[in-house]
């Protein structure tokens, strides 16, 4: 049953990474901005769960909804307060701004909460195990996979059949042309940030669910994974981001199994080598997407 365990673990890890990557690409697709503050939306959701769990009697499901909403709100506010003012000036200014927002949010938590990790109360479902097809696995893994499938389905429907979704796909393809068609740029960008933050919030639930704790630097690893997964999958395609997340999960688990114990601490180094290979051999990622630099006229 080792194979069954491997499959479930890989699907679970891959699902989480797919969501992480998707959140990053939603904004990148439209603004061509790698939002380094993205990991901090995960952190904000984590601290929301900590605060609600530790200081209020609200049930766990309310905690989770509020946590996801806080991440989406933070994402929207960073766009409104920070990015909107600089994004028309230059791409580099927006990139540096995203670093600034990241440092600012991290330091706010260091200052006002604590530099030390805090325990997050989680529903008992997160520590239970179940047996599927003879494989014993944490229920958390199954929840991650199921949630991801539901979200991917929902987002697919949103992007394919709603006016907003079609406008967002159009904007991700040719932003300037979309504006010339009467689409309000700020509206589309705001929604991209809200969806990005929403995904970061959902990721946070499962991310925090693995360790049951949150610390000020918790956002760094999801950001890194999102970045690597999008390099593998392709920065210009939502499908590419999801595929990249699953491939990353698969590679990570294969390395975890095959590397000898003495080498396991070098697992990340191997992952980076794979990324470097991708950048050298297929810089556009697995799925190329269709973005071309815009030149009008």
């Amino acid at each position: 049953m080792i194979f069954g365990e491997f499959v479930i673990n890989t699907l679970s890890l891959g699902s989480l990474y797919a969501l992480v990557a998707l959140g990053l690409v939603f904004v990148y697709g439209i603004l061509k901005l790698v939002n380094f503050a993205y990991g901090e939306y995960v952190m904000v959701a984590g601290y929301s769960m900590y605060i609600l769990g530790a200081f209020t009697p609200v049930p766990w499901w309310v905690t989770m909804i509020v946590a996801v909403a806080m991440a989406a709100l933070t994402s929207y506010l960073t766009e409104l307060v920070a990015f909107r003012r600089v994004r028309q000036k230059s791409d580099n200014a927006a990139l540096v701004t995203s670093f600034a927002v990241m440092v600012l949010l991290q330091n706010a938590v260091l200052l006002f909460v604590s530099p030390r990790a805090r325990a997050v109360k989680l529903p008992s479902a997160f520590s239970e195990s179940i047996t599927i097809l003879g494989v014993v696995t944490p229920l958390r893994n199954v929840l991650t996979i199921a949630t991801t499938l539901v979200l991917l389905l929902g987002l697919t429907l949103l992007m394919k059949y709603t006016v907003l979704g079609i406008a967002m796909r159009a904007a991700a393809d040719k932003f300037t042309t979309t504006r010339l068609m009467g689409v309000q740029a700020n509206l589309v960008i705001s929604f991209a940030f809200i969806i990005s933050g929403f995904l970061a919030g959902v990721v946070s639930i499962f991310w925090v669910g693995r360790s049951a704790s949150v610390d000020p630097l918790i956002g760094f690893t999801p950001l890194l994974i999102a970045f690597i997964a999008t390099v593998i999958g392709g920065m210009n395609s939502l499908v590419g981001a999801v595929a990249g997340g699953y491939v990353y999960g698969l590679l990570f688990n294969i390395l975890s199994i095959t590397l000898p114990a003495s080498m396991i601490s070098y697992r990340d180094a191997f992952m980076f080598m794979i990324v470097i290979l991708f950048l050298l051999l297929r810089p556009e990622g697995m799925i190329k997407g269709n973005y071309t630099e815009e030149r009008v006229g």
């Binding site: 079609i166 393809d173 042309t177 010339l180 009467g182 997407g289 009008v296």
Partner: peptide
Amino acid sequence: PHRVSRAGIARTFQTVRLFRELTVLENVEV
């Protein structure tokens, strides 16, 4: 630009600038 287009000005481009990943119908619909 979005306000200008709402005032009643639409355009095409020297190099075709369709939304290549949208269907033909979606391009017009959007």
